[in-house]
Deep mutational scan, measured.
Amino acid sequence: SLTLTVRGEEAVRRWYKWAQAHNLEVEVETHGDEYVLHIK
């Protein structure tokens, strides 16, 4: 499992696509303009 902090929706989309390509689940938490992604 992997936890990432990114800024901006574009980065979130990029990681989301990456995770889907690897059959992984993604949980997204929003903290202001930062997003915490939990990839499992």
Rank of each mutant, 00 (worst) to 15 (best):
H38N: 06
A19M: 03
T30E: 14
E10V: 07
E25A: 10
E34P: 02
K17V: 12
R14I: 12
A21R: 09
D33T: 07
E25T: 14
T3E: 07
V36S: 03
V6Q: 01
Y35R: 03
Y16G: 04
L2N: 04
V6N: 01
K40L: 09
L24I: 07
E25V: 14
V36F: 07
K17F: 10
E25I: 15
H31E: 06
V12R: 05
E9K: 11
I39M: 07
N23V: 03
E25N: 10
V28G: 02
V12L: 15
E34A: 10
A11V: 07
V36H: 06
Q20F: 08
L24E: 01
G32A: 06
R13V: 09
W18V: 02
T30M: 13
V26R: 00
A21Q: 12
V28E: 03
E27Q: 11
S1G: 14
V28R: 02
G32D: 08
Y16D: 04
Q20Y: 10
S1W: 14
T3Y: 04
K17S: 11
G8H: 06
N23S: 09
H22V: 04
D33Y: 06
H31Y: 12
A11G: 05
G8R: 03
R7C: 10
L24A: 06
W15F: 08
R7W: 12
Y35P: 03
G32H: 05
T3G: 04
K17E: 15
E27T: 14
L24W: 11
D33I: 06
L37Y: 00
S1R: 10
V12T: 03
T5Q: 08
T5H: 14
L37E: 00
R7H: 13
R14D: 10
E27R: 12
V26N: 00
E29A: 07
T30V: 15
T30D: 11
V36I: 14
Y35Q: 03
H31N: 12
S1D: 14
G32T: 04
Y16H: 10
S1K: 13
Y16P: 00
V36C: 03
V6G: 02
R13K: 14
K17T: 11
R13W: 10
Y16M: 15
H38A: 03
E27L: 13
E34L: 15
V26L: 12
Y35S: 04
K17Y: 10
I39T: 01
V6W: 01
L4H: 04
A19F: 07
L24G: 02
K40R: 14
N23M: 09
V36N: 03
E9A: 10
Y16E: 15
N23R: 08
W15Q: 01
A19Q: 01
E34I: 15
T30R: 15
Q20S: 10
V28Y: 06
I39C: 02
H38R: 11
R14Q: 14
Y35D: 01
A19R: 00
A21V: 09
G8K: 04
G32W: 03
E9N: 06
V26S: 01
T30C: 04
L4T: 05
L4Q: 03
W15I: 14
T3S: 10
L4I: 15
L37S: 00
A19L: 08
A21H: 10
V6A: 03
Y16L: 15
T5N: 07
R13D: 13
E27W: 14
H31L: 11
E10D: 12
V6R: 01
R7Q: 12
I39N: 00
T3F: 03
R13M: 12
A11D: 09
R14N: 10
G8L: 04
H38L: 07
I39L: 08
L4R: 03
E10A: 12
V26H: 01
Y35M: 05
N23K: 08
L4S: 02
H31A: 09
S1M: 13
V28T: 06
E27N: 09
I39F: 13
Y35F: 12
A21Y: 12
E9M: 13
R13G: 08
R13E: 14
L2E: 04
V12W: 06
E34K: 10
E10Q: 08
E34N: 10
R7L: 10
E27M: 12
W18G: 00
E29R: 08
R13N: 13
R14L: 14
W15K: 01
K40T: 13
R13S: 10
E25K: 11
A11E: 14
E34R: 10
V26P: 02
V26K: 00
E9H: 09
G8I: 03
G32M: 05
L2P: 04
H22P: 00
L4P: 02
G32S: 05
E9I: 14
T30P: 13
A21N: 08
R14G: 10
R7G: 05
A21P: 01
L37N: 00
V6M: 04
Y16W: 11
Y35E: 02
V28P: 01
L24C: 05
V26D: 00
T5S: 07
L24D: 01
V6S: 02
W18R: 01
H38F: 08
E29V: 12
S1F: 11
W15E: 01
E27C: 05
V6Y: 02
A21G: 06
I39Q: 00
A19K: 00
D33A: 08
E34F: 15
R14P: 03
E29Y: 11
I39A: 01
L2M: 12
V26T: 03
H31M: 11
R14K: 14
V28K: 04
T3R: 10
A11W: 06
T5D: 02
E29T: 12
A19T: 03
Y35G: 01
L4N: 02
T3L: 07
T5G: 03
E9G: 05
A11C: 02
G8T: 14
E34V: 15
Q20I: 14
S1A: 12
E29C: 04
R14S: 10
V26A: 03
W18F: 06
E10S: 08
E34M: 15
E29G: 04
A21I: 11
L4A: 05
A19N: 01
A11S: 08
T30S: 13
I39P: 00
L37R: 00
W18E: 01
T30K: 15
D33K: 06
Y16K: 15
E10K: 08
D33R: 05
G8C: 02
T3W: 07
L4K: 04
R7T: 12
D33L: 07
G32R: 05
Q20W: 10
L2Q: 06
V26W: 07
R7S: 10
E29M: 09
S1E: 15
R7Y: 13
H38I: 12
Y16I: 15
A19P: 00
L37P: 00
A19D: 00
S1P: 12
V28W: 07
L2K: 05
E29D: 07
W18Y: 07
Y35T: 05
S1L: 13
G8M: 03
R7N: 09
G8S: 14
L4E: 02
L37D: 00
I39S: 00
E10C: 03
H38C: 03
H22F: 07
R13A: 13
T5A: 08
V36P: 00
T3A: 06
W15M: 05
V12S: 03
K40Y: 15
V36T: 11
V6D: 01
E34D: 10
Y16T: 15
K17I: 13
E10F: 06
H38Q: 06
L2R: 05
N23T: 04
V28Q: 04
G32P: 04
L24K: 05
V12E: 02
A11F: 05
D33S: 08
R13F: 08
E9V: 12
L24H: 04
T5V: 15
E34Q: 11
E10H: 08
E29N: 05
D33V: 06
H38S: 06
E25Y: 14
E10R: 07
E29L: 09
Q20N: 10
A11L: 09
Y35N: 02
A21D: 14
R13L: 12
L4G: 02
V12I: 08
R7I: 13
I39G: 00
N23F: 09
V28M: 10
L2S: 04
E10M: 07
V28C: 04
V6I: 09
E25Q: 13
A11I: 06
R13T: 11
K17R: 11
V36A: 03
S1Q: 13
R14M: 14
N23Q: 08
T5I: 15
D33M: 07
E9Q: 09
E9T: 09
